[in-house]
Design a protein around this nucleic acid. Structure first.
Length: 851
RNA sequence: GCCGGAGUGGCGGAAUCGGCAGACGCGACGGUCUCAAACACCGUUGAGGGCAACCUCAUCCGGGUUCAAGUCCCGGCUCCGGCACCA
């Protein structure tokens, strides 16, 4: 900190020097424990502000600053509003990159991760953010992941975890691959280039589908519409019916087997002209006619290697193969051919559909491709015989069934219900709901994750590790180099155990957990990161959660944010917490891309390191610049052009606060009040500017509109700067203006404002206290009232003139003033307006004249 | 492909309960200061036309609704995020 005692002896203005101010204040704040939250303080309302924790990739880049510094401003603003703010940080420390780095550089994942965390901690401190470092969580620490294991066991007890097979992408050399590790259209391993295959493995799942309906209810939270829509679509609830078709007897098959299909349109049952099974459907093999076997098997094998995105593409030509078997329509008795096609997914609905090409776009495309009949069964009145050149999918209340036997003529909706009822009576169908969302597969065939606390015994099957034996520690020395096998399976000491239930020889589960588990409850742990007797401190959790405000990238819109909601509900049902939702309010900020418009990544070499910017401008300038760039939810490519303007702004603030009487070389008007103003007018203008800014900036902070917040502070500083060196500078209005400017700027630029604030206090001879503990100022309503206003006047929608009228003018008086305005009279050229439209609140007048 | 978002001066962006398009900043141009340059400061700056007062055009493209459209509706294009093992 700068010693202020010798200021009077200086002849030149002391320059703004961020490099000397910022580290000093950061150190002092830490010494004072200014941002250590007293979680037990009952005197103020709590405000839990959470920003998504980081993966410790090694270096903080400008994207981290973009995420964190506006969040910090929110926290500081709320603190000034009198709330007890809790803003923790931590590290999402398990995951693939550590293991990839380990394989590549022969560093242990733990070492790599912990070094990165150390480095990032130091870098995080340079932001000057008000993080409470006492609350840090590091997920790869056994004190954290043991509770992942504990929670898993509770979920297992509650019937929310189970074991089932799932296909994974498999490389013969490197084992399971993540999606991003499978490259190219021919699907090769990124590391060794081998052809990637699918392999079915027994894996652990969490029953998120049980909560599907509850997850569709957002009534308890204030989240942005787009996120709610995406989650709703992701869950994908569909109402309809299940209909049981029967296989027909044929030369190679006895028939009589049930084939259940799910449909959202039971009303179109009479229009089913063929049936499609997913390649994964269990009866595909047994239904296939011998002469079709080779073709069907080849098709199924090929379909399994395609991604879901490819399979569901409506652009791609439909493919499929006839099985050489038929199914019987339960209501019409009609026999229709059965196909296998990859546009039907094994995991959705029943994995089988009745295809109604007349009323489904995908079925229509398939039928056209394979020359199958298309039979209209729903029509708008009068269009019953109209040809179909595309699927007729809309259903209006006036639509009626046609070609539907006894149901023909019924309104489509009613007919659909009647058909379901008839089917139910004969045991061939029922109303049903299905979801797009699948259960959450949490098994990973990796080393660097939370070991799943299960022991496999030949006698007893999978047995949970007893709670008192937790944590199952991740062994330190393990051969995690890729070799196809699970890394933990190669550690004999880890692997070989006795069964907790029968004491016989057994082996540990060698899969680890998805890292989304870590992030599905970490905000609870922040409240008591050291607690040994359980995952959470119930009293603190009850007082502090749900999190008041969560901020993070929109790339997490669905998965992380949905898993967190699911976990909270599951923990509630287990009796661990009371609430239904994790995050009351959510804000998804945008993403900073590299200068090339691509996502910042080391491999692309487009990462912007903030360190050189800090050295040149200081943290406050960067913080402010990131907020000023544009709307926070937008992000965009990084460009430092413009940062100089923000730096100039801070220099002006510095000059205004430290030297009100100074003037600038080169300014011929320096020291003079603006034309036509005396001191009274000038001071009133300053007061109005300051309080209007306060009014607007407050709204901007509340709405996270940081770009306009900074713009408004720039306007205020420009307004004050105009009076610098004039008789109005240093007066009461000026002093209040400076005070408000600093207070409003404090959440966004904490260092320079703290420095200038401490100098003000020193000058005033008051004892020091931090600006960040000041209350948010009050708007003086009297100072913001305007006496007159300028109203634009249009003639036939084009601006022709402006009139200045009293602010409380009546519509009638306004109209008189408008008609007397010279340019309006010229534009009317003697004509009388046919209509006079006064926009609401006298914002604008439009005169409409014909001819 | 499907779901979600965005497209406004040379650039980042402002203005969305339908009411002055371009706040604020960058850049550019002119000037002041300086021996000079840099810094700083003052001014101009959407495009086109006109001596001027002013006029015309302009918010991705094409239609539409309206006294009035960046904003609402219909159709398209481009870019960004997600699509279940990156986090």
């Amino acid at each position: 900190m700068t010693d202020t005692s010798d200021r009077g002896e200086r002849t030149l203005i002391e320059r703004y020097d961020a490099a000397s101010i910022e580290p000093a204040w950061q150190a002092r704040w830490t010494d004072l424990g200014l941002y250590r939250t007293d979680l037990d303080d009952q005197s103020r309302p709590t405000y839990y502000l959470l920003t998504m924790y980081d993966y410790p990739s090694g270096n903080l880049h400008i994207g981290h600053w973009y995420v964190k510094t506006p969040t910090d401003a929110i926290g500081r603003y709320h603190r000034m509003r009198g709330e007890n703010v809790f803003m923790p940080v931590g590290f999402d420390a398990f995951g693939l990159p550590a293991e990839n780095a380990a394989i590549k550089n022969r560093v242990h994942p733990r070492e790599w991760t912990m070094q990165n965390i150390d480095h990032m901690r130091r870098q995080l401190r340079t932001m000057g953010a008000a993080f409470d470092w006492d609350a840090e969580v590091v997920t790869c620490d056994p004190s954290y992941y043991r509770w992942n294991q504990w929670l898993f066991l509770q979920l297992l007890n509650a019937g929310l975890a189970y074991r089932a097979k799932a296909p994974v992408d498999w490389c013969p050399n490197d084992g399971t691959l993540a999606r991003e590790q499978v490259e190219g259209a021919d699907r090769r391993c990124w590391r060794c280039g081998a052809k990637v295959e699918k392999r079915d493995l027994d894996q652990w799942w969490l029953r998120i589908t049980k909560y599907a309906d509850e997850l569709l209810d957002f009534s308890g939270i204030q989240w942005p519409d787009p996120i709610r829509i995406m989650q709703t679509n992701w869950i994908g609830r569909s109402e309809g019916g299940e209909i049981v078709f029967t296989t027909a007897a044929s030369a190679h098959h006895t028939g009589g087997e049930d084939l259940r299909v799910f449909t959202t349109r039971p009303d179109t049952l009479f229009g089913a002209t063929f049936m499609v099974l997913a390649p994964e459907h269990p009866v595909v093999a047994s239904l296939t006619a011998p002469e079709r076997r080779a073709e069907v098997e080849a098709y199924v094998a090929h379909a399994r290697s395609a991604t879901e995105i490819e399979r569901l593409s409506t652009e791609r030509e439909k493919t499929g193969v006839a099985l050489g078997a038929e199914a019987i329509n339960p209501i019409s008795g009609e026999r229709i051919p059965i196909y296998v096609a990859d546009y039907v997914l094994g995991g959705y609905g029943t994995g089988a559909i009745m295809a109604v090409p007349a009323h489904d776009e995908r079925d229509f495309a398939f039928a056209t491709q394979f020359d199958l009949p298309i039979r209209r069964v729903v029509a708008e009145p009068g269009t019953e015989d109209a040809a179909l050149d595309e699927a007729f999918v809309s259903h209006a209340p006036t639509d009626r069934l046609v070609n539907s036997g006894p149901y023909s003529g019924l309104p489509a909706d009613e007919g659909g219900r009647a058909i379901v009822a008839a089917l139910a009576e004969q045991g061939a169908g029922n109303a049903a709901v299905t979801y797009r969302i699948r259960d959450w597969l949490i098994s990973r065939q990796r080393y660097w994750g939370t070991p799943i606390p299960i022991i496999h015994c030949d006698q007893c099957g999978p047995v949970p590790v007893p709670e008192n034996e937790l944590p199952v520690l991740l062994p330190d020395v393990v051969d995690y180099q890729g070799s196809g096998e699970n890394p933990l399976a190669r550690d004999e000491a880890f692997l070989r155990v006795t069964c907790p239930s029968c004491d016989g020889p057994a082996r540990r589960e060698t899969d680890t957990m998805d890292t989304f588990i870590d992030s599905s409850w970490y905000w609870f742990r922040y409240l008591s990161p050291e607690k040994a007797g359980g995952p959470i401190d119930r009293a603190l959790v009850d007082r502090w959660t749900p999190v008041d405000q969560y901020t993070g990238g929109a790339e997490h819109a669905v998965m992380h944010l949905l898993y967190s909601r699911f976990f909270t509900k599951a923990m509630r049902d287990i009796g661990l917490v009371h609430e239904d939702e994790p995050f009351r309010r959510l804000f998804n900020q945008g993403q900073i891309l590299g200068a090339d418009g691509e996502r910042m990544s080391k491999s692309r070499g487009n990462v912007q390191d903030p360190d050189e910017l800090i050295a040149r401008y200081g943290a406050d300038t960067i913080r402010l610049f990131l907020m000023f760039m544009g709307p926070w939810d937008q992000g965009g490519p990084w460009s430092a052009s413009g940062i100089g303007g923000v730096y100039r702004f801070l220099n002006r603030v510095w000059a205004i606060a430290i030297d009100p009487t100074g003037t600038d070389r080169g300014d011929q008007e320096a020291g003079r009040l603006p034309a036509g103003q005396d001191i009274g007018v000038a001071e009133a203008a300053i007061r109005t500017a300051a309080h209007r800014t306060l009014r607007d900036v407050t709204i901007d902070y509340e709405g996270f509109r940081f770009n306009t917040m900074v713009a408004r502070l720039m306007e205020l500083s420009n307004a004050l700067y105009r009076y610098r060196g004039t008789p109005a500078a240093g007066g009461r209005a000026w002093d209040e203006g400076v005070r408000l400017l600093l207070l409003m700027l404090a959440p966004a630029a904490p260092h320079i404002t703290e420095e200038l604030w401490s100098r003000r206090l020193a000058t005033a001879g008051t004892g020091w206290s931090s600006i960040h503990l000041e209350p948010w100022p009050q708007v003086d309503a009297g100072a913001v009232i305007e006496e007159t206003r300028e109203v634009p006047v249009q003639v036939n929608g084009k601006i022709r003139d402006k009139v200045v009228v009293p602010a409380d003018v009546s519509d009638a008086d306004l109209e008189l003033a408008v008609l007397a305005a010279p340019k309006v009279m010229a534009a009317l050229s003697g004509r009388t307006p046919d209509r006079v439209i006064v926009a609401g609140g006298c914002r604008l007048v439009n005169l409409v004249v014909r001819g």
